[in-house]
Amino acid sequence: MSATTPQNNVYKPKRSFFKSGKEDSPFKRLIIHLVLILACMIALYPILRVFAVSLRPGNRLLSTDLALIPPDASFESYRIVLFERPFLSWIWNSLIITMSTALIGVILAASAAYAFSRWKFPGRGAGLVFLLATQMIPASMLMIPLYILAIRLNLVGTYRGLVIAYCVTSIPFSIWILKGYFDTIPIDLEEAARIDGASQMKTFLQIIVPLSTPALAITFLFNFTAAWNEFMLARIILGSKEELMTWPLGLQRLQGQFQTQWGQFSAASIIVTIPVVLLFLYSSKYLLSGLTLGGVKG
């Protein structure tokens, strides 16, 4: 495993599609396409419905009509969400919290992962098992002490506690992914650099970090989405101040229990979803190779 270069190992999934040894009959192919089209419809329909509702003008948000594009489509809901609701504040809050915590989280995880990958220090095995064990802890289990500690430290209703918590909670998983990646980089490169007189820090920053840019990017993205979609901790720490909310809190407020603003909720959902989906689709194949490499490594 460690002898191969990262390029061979991670970023070129094998593309050998000719599995069955013989071509399928036209009838079988037709059935397969029909099944897949049905599956695609099931996957897409709820999303398209959200889009449809977002286009309905205010007086008939709720309708039993199943048509996707309403005949009197309008962008009224988008206008209300963008200019009359604190939606942009929510997005802004989420964006700065998420960007900064993901960045700090990756820096902390990358340096720790490098230590795990290159040194056999005492306590290493226990540390790796601990990192794996943290993945079992139910999120709501950590909420209880974090909430009470946040009250005692006066961190409720501020971003401080949230930012610190987000930086740390994604570290174990990031270390797993990055350690798996660092393991695939041959150690010879660093040894050569050391012989040339480079310091350990310099070797890490100038050889390992540039070689690992793709893995670091995936880890950043992973941390980013985890914090971007986080709801529970934000809810108990930020409470119900509307101007402090991150977008998941705000969106849940729009879909309140009795007076749901369906059109606004849907418009806001579409605005949040499109960039996230594009980013996800663009990076999904890297994300997955990172996942399997961290978990299945023999």
Partner: peptide, 27 residues
């Protein structure tokens, strides 16, 4: 297309499904 349910922010996907389970208007 089949990967999309995973790509959408989970909160949005679940709230959208909640709408589909509405008694009168849900799909």
């Amino acid at each position: 297309i089949l990967i999309l349910p995973w790509a959408i922010p989970q909160v949005i996907a679940v709230l959208a499904w909640r709408g589909e389970f509405n008694y009168t208007y849900g799909y």
